Simulated scan of single mutants.
Amino acid sequence: MDFIDYYQTLGIDKNATEADIKKAYRKLARKYHPDVNPGDKAAEQKFKEVNEANEVLSNAEKRKQYDKYGKDWKHAEQFEKAGAGAGQGYTYRPREDTGGFGEGFSGSDYSDFFESMFGGSAGGFRQGGRSVKYRGQDFHAQLDLDIRDAYKTHQQVVTVNGEKIRLTIAAGIADGQTIKIKGKGGPGANGGPNGDLYIKFTIRNDTGFHREGDRLYANVEIDLYTAILGGEIVADTFDGKVKLKIPPETQAGTKVRLKGKGFPVYKKEGEFGDLIFTYTIKNPTNLSAEEKKLFEQLKNLR
């Protein structure tokens, strides 16, 4: 297996921080995403490479193994077990042409590695007289959603290592939430189970609503006269409009709660949180001389 420089793939150096890795991955994932480059095989391949690099470098343990063992980092556990377990159930028969750990296998492939290091067949090694199965690698991906998409249950297709996976995303998914898709990770070895796929969601919000869990918050502006005398206004909710009755002498900062007008409750069909409005008062501007005179009269009356 040829060595792949994951740092070079993401355009970062070996001293990159976790934040550097995340920033580089997001930039490249957006650039090469199949939805942005439909039918572009080169972009699709680049997208796979970027995801593979992020999968390794964003995981502290995998990154440590990669830095230590290079192209053979996936076999780090076997290397370490071999070094620690010789004479304890492992058949360890080093050969002259192995070239040493961390320096490749002198042209030998994955099968030769198991055969030379642990004895047994190319399908895996044997420990204590039984064949050992290996669970596949877990995959990690990130999916960006607009808050309007997160408001409703919908389907999306994501491409992971060349495989298209159709997801049903429940309304109310939260920013930073991670879901697991069982068996959609890397393939197992020697009959072991596949790994799992973990997808982390980031929610973009460019609306006038602030979300906290299943509650929504927004400011509603009312004019001075309505605030003083009372009346009705029409305000926007997340999925429509609503009439609000304003009591006389309403103060700035007054809050009103609209039950069930907030965000959907995750995986609870038909349930919604509340919407909290905070009133702000808009003072009149560009007053005429007569209007100013009337305000002066009101001031004197008070």
Rank of each mutant, 00 (worst) to 15 (best):
D223V: 10
D67L: 10
V132D: 04
Y266V: 03
D223I: 08
G123A: 10
I173A: 02
I21A: 01
K64S: 09
G230Q: 07
A53I: 01
A289K: 09
P94S: 08
R148K: 15
K243M: 11
K46N: 09
K14L: 05
E49L: 11
I246F: 11
H154D: 10
A122Y: 07
G128I: 00
N286K: 13
G176H: 05
F277E: 00
G270E: 04
K68C: 03
R211D: 04
K62F: 00
G262C: 12
T178Q: 12
R30H: 12
D274M: 06
K48T: 10
K23E: 05
I276T: 12
P284Q: 11
N300D: 12
K46A: 14
A29D: 07
G176I: 11
T202E: 14
I181L: 15
A42R: 11
K241L: 11
K255L: 08
I21T: 00
E77F: 07
G85L: 03
L298R: 06
D109S: 11
P264W: 01
Y92M: 13
K71E: 02
L244V: 13
G191V: 05
F201K: 03
N51C: 09
V157N: 14
D214N: 15
S108P: 03
K46V: 04
K243D: 15
Y151L: 10
I203M: 06
G83K: 10
V234W: 03
T17I: 09
G83R: 09
G270D: 02
L10G: 00
G107L: 10
D2L: 10
P187Q: 09
L287S: 06
V56H: 00
R257S: 13
A19I: 05
K48F: 09
